[in-house]
Design a protein around this nucleic acid. Sequence first.
DNA 1: TTGTAGGCGTTATCAT
DNA 2: ATGATAACGCCTACAA
Lengths: 353, 353
Amino acid sequence: VASSRSTIYTVARESGVSIATVSRVMRNGSGFSEATRERVLSTVAEMEWVPSGAARGLATQRTGILGLLFPDIGRGDEVDQESPRYVDEVIRGAERAATAAGDAVLIAATRSTSGRDLAFSVASKVDGLVVLAGSLSEPDLTSIARSLPVVVLANNTTQHELDSVGTDGQAGSRSVTSHLIESHDHHDLAYVGGPTDCPDDEERFAGYQAALGDAGLPVPDRPDAAGDFTRPGGGKAMTALLAERPTPPRAVVFGNDEMAMGALAVLRQRKLRVPQDVAVTGFDDIVPAAHLRPALTTVRQPMRQLGERSIEMLLQRIADPQGPRSSVVLPTQPVLRRSCGCTARARTAGDAR
Amino acid sequence: VASSRSTIYTVARESGVSIATVSRVMRNGSGFSEATRERVLSTVAEMEWVPSGAARGLATQRTGILGLLFPDIGRGDEVDQESPRYVDEVIRGAERAATAAGDAVLIAATRSTSGRDLAFSVASKVDGLVVLAGSLSEPDLTSIARSLPVVVLANNTTQHELDSVGTDGQAGSRSVTSHLIESHDHHDLAYVGGPTDCPDDEERFAGYQAALGDAGLPVPDRPDAAGDFTRPGGGKAMTALLAERPTPPRAVVFGNDEMAMGALAVLRQRKLRVPQDVAVTGFDDIVPAAHLRPALTTVRQPMRQLGERSIEMLLQRIADPQGPRSSVVLPTQPVLRRSCGCTARARTAGDAR
DNA sequence: TTGTAGGCGTTATCAT
DNA sequence: ATGATAACGCCTACAA
């Protein structure tokens, strides 16, 4: 009854065996008769005993918990409904993979104040950590990586010696750009980039460059405009683009969906039709992208899989702390919709070449 | 260096004090000189020691971890991008509240197979559990609630004796319905409900009834059609509604957004304009709702706050296990958009009366 | 098949 | 201000 007071000793006494036997039965091991097993299990159920995770953890040196550290977005209130929710997908994937392996997932967002402190308070409770890019400073990251297994989740290849998972943003960007050129026969393109020194954006721009090169078109060495990855920024960049040229570019590749959305609004105002007058593409496939008119052609990153793979890598690392460092890059997937000129029925492209 | 091997003993020896002193310093307590404090702290940093959470948990009987149990949605693959993402918001809120209190959040989705097992494996690792409605069977729930503090997160008032948080769906539904009647002067309304015996839907229908009653209109005792809470279901219900009446209802209140979206498609096909010919409202404020044309008027539930409140209640319960049961109902918020007849600029209504 | 006993790394209660 | 030393609840050789 007083289940909060029952321990392995209580259960052992009640079922007339030693604590070792109770332990064996609970661990599902061997070394006990079927009769004993049943007796123990029944009293366990009867007493509603749940073995203490802490005690078990102390003895086995394994908590059975994996941590997921991510930067605190959505700091604002309820408003930012549709801001980059990719973290949620990663969490889902991580949860799934961890559960499949019999572990649980502990989540923690690094807030401005905490950072290092939080990381360490979490570190003491888990067997390993998946750290999303941007949640920790480089020094903190390497420091914490010395006291427990860490896998880094970043979009761009990282040079430190930690295991890492990422996506191939360059290939995705290259793919949609090529699509614009080859399938829709557009040759007058422009690229709107994000913040300066943003590795994600650099990668995407590189893909854009590569596609132009592939097609034998002149390759620019920097984006035609910058939009800071925000919706207003995208609008302004679009406006600037229209202002500085006699005729609008036939197609504009944006570094992310938010900017593309801002541009779409500007184009509508200017009575320029998408995709008839100007084709537009984004990056990320945020939720609203599919519901815009026209629906936005973009590139999807396999967030769920990122979560899953990162956990799998972490488990691998925990199992073999000395093993060689591994780094995985997952493919991105172009999502062709109306805004690039495809028909409404166009399906997601299969390859990310 | 070999931080994985350092314990409180190592640190104590290294800094020339006893483990008790190290413990005191780490706990930020009192009973040591400033000089000692600095010395200990510096060797702690030097050795990169992180106190074992398991050991600490064993000694204090507190893990510093709160669990969040939710039903496994999104079982499909990447496809269902916009399926119930409310869980994500709840998780965010929970994480925030827990971190604020110095605790961490452990998440776990109950999959078909697991259920009870998962619940117990989680139970052993946490100080308490927030259980989302539908993740556990009633017996499992009460059973697990006997071995640790539990707060139930349900949309409808639950009758069991556990602490619970929920939202006032009835008030929300009543509010939009009244809005339809009073602000837009519609008197010929219809309600499309969800699955049979769905408490959420019953609550919302009750709100609809109440609003009609308030306005002195005849009060139906059951929904005019049922749409199963799915998009196709909503479309069929709308079709049925149009078929069985000489003239379309002037306004249709849907039990959720998905159904409303299905109906919107049907109405467009039939060349019926929304809101000019038929006004439409939904419930939930799922992400696409704001991006439809017309944008969907609906009711928003404070998911983030639900997460926060539930954690706060859980902490309260942990602090005072014997305290009286408490139950909180959070207000919902009407979101007036184009589909009910409001102008595009209409803002979210303030009160949920 | 079953039991005994030592150990896991902290916290907290006593002394000193 | 500091130091011994029991808990804390479980796992696991090692014995029997």
